[in-house]
Write a protein that binds this DNA or RNA. Structure first.
Length: 238
DNA sequence: GGTACCTGGAT
DNA sequence: CATCCAGGTAC
């Protein structure tokens, strides 16, 4: 495991390697490539990759995208499948099973797939409810306590690495050029940012290439250019 | 084999 | 800004 100093050294080595071919095609290639370079085994453990140093995040420079803080499915169990069946729509490119992608805010209802209907998130007591204005209602919610646990597992600190990129698909390459350790993000602040619509809840249910349903996980996300709103402190590592 | 996590986007 | 989307694994 790294210390802050050995991590800084390794990041410098990686920077000096220049452009590095992606280890996986598609959006997730940058994260997989960086994990490999740092010797982190791919995992789906709900915890910080770098232990006390924080959770590892990476993104491409000059591109606007959202950072996933953590994923947490709503309750009750398997309700994502019900949401998919109830509100999903057929992917016109595949014309098979339903998919459901929707970025939900705390401030107002969104719209889903060109319909007049959508979702918003609303705090009621100890829960966050996924509310909808669709004619058909489904009850889905998160316990604040569950979110607090997920939050505290991953987000006390965060290692944020940026790369210049060129090429596309399997031929994409990354030059990791900038890195920070961010800290000082409280759950109270997290709740506040959800209420203000800064942190959004992203429902991401798509399909595998063979047409099977692929739930990428319901994510709590923020635009990468607003990540500074979460953390009080920042240390430059590269 | 479905569910719930991991890693990230384009327009 | 919002709407809609991507490739992986453990169990």
């Amino acid at each position: 495991m790294y210390t802050l100093e050995t991590l800084k050294q390794r990041l410098k080595e990686i920077e000096q390697m220049g452009y590095i071919p992606t280890h996986r095609s598609g959006p997730t290639g940058i994260g997989k490539t960086l994990e490999d370079l740092l010797g982190i085994n791919e995992n789906n453990i709900a915890g910080a990759d770098l232990g006390d140093l924080g959770e590892l995040k990476s993104c491409r420079n000059n591109q606007t995208s959202m950072i996933t803080l953590f994923t947490k499915s709503p309750k009750p169990p398997r309700v994502n499948g019900i949401l998919l069946n109830t509100y999903g729509y057929v992917d016109p490119r595949r014309d098979s099973r339903k998919i459901l992608h929707s970025t939900v805010s705390g401030t107002s209802y969104n719209t889903v797939n060109g319909t007049p209907y959508g979702f918003k998130v609303e705090v009621v007591g100890d829960r966050l409810y996924l509310k909808s204005n669709f004619p058909q209602q489904v009850t889905a919610y998160w316990e604040k306590e569950d979110l607090k646990k997920a939050f505290e597992k991953k987000l006390p600190k965060l290692i944020f690495v940026k790369a210049n990129c060129k090429g596309t698909g399997r031929n994409e390459e990354f030059h990791f050029v900038e890195a920070y350790q961010l800290s000082g993000f409280s759950f109270k602040n997290f709740e506040e940012l959800i209420n203000r619509g800064i942190i959004k809840i992203d429902i991401r249910i798509g399909q595998y290439p063979d047409g099977r349903t692929h739930d990428h996980g319901t994510a709590f996300r923020i635009m990468n250019n607003q990540i500074h709103l979460c953390f009080a402190h920042r240390i430059k590592l590269l």
